[in-house]
Amino acid sequence: MTLFVLALLVFLFPLAYSPGPGNMFFAALGARFGVSATLAANAGYHVATLLVTALIGAGLVSLIDPDSAVFFALKTGGSIYVLWLAWKMAVAGRSAAEMRVGSAGFLDGVMLLVLNPKAYVIIVLMYSQFGGVGLASTGERVAVISLVFTLNNLLAFLLWTLAGDGLGRVFRSEAGARRLNLVFAVVLAGVAFWMMFG
Results as ranks from 00 to 15, higher is better:
M1K: 13
A7R: 14
L8I: 11
L8V: 09
V10Y: 12
F11S: 09
A16I: 03
P21D: 10
P21W: 00
G22N: 15
N23T: 10
N23R: 04
M24E: 09
A27P: 07
G30C: 07
A31R: 04
V35N: 03
N42G: 12
A48D: 03
L51K: 01
V52H: 01
A54N: 05
I56N: 01
G57K: 01
G59S: 12
G59F: 09
V61C: 10
V61Q: 10
P66L: 10
F71M: 05
K75L: 10
T76H: 06
G77Q: 05
G78D: 09
G78Y: 03
S79I: 09
V82S: 02
L85K: 08
A97W: 07
V101D: 08
G102N: 05
A104W: 01
G109M: 03
V114N: 01
V114C: 04
P117W: 01
I123V: 15
V124K: 04
L125D: 14
M126F: 09
M126D: 02
F130A: 06
G131H: 06
V133C: 11
G134T: 11
A136P: 06
S137K: 07
E140K: 09
R141C: 07
A143P: 02
V144H: 02
V144M: 07
V148E: 05
T150V: 08
N152I: 00
N152Q: 12
N153Y: 00
L154T: 15
F157E: 03
L159N: 07
L162V: 15
G164H: 07
D165S: 15
G168W: 00
S173N: 15
S173R: 14
E174G: 15
A177Q: 13
L182F: 12
V187G: 08
L188T: 02
A189F: 08
A189L: 08
G190E: 10
A192G: 13
A192V: 03
M195A: 05
F197I: 13
G198Q: 11
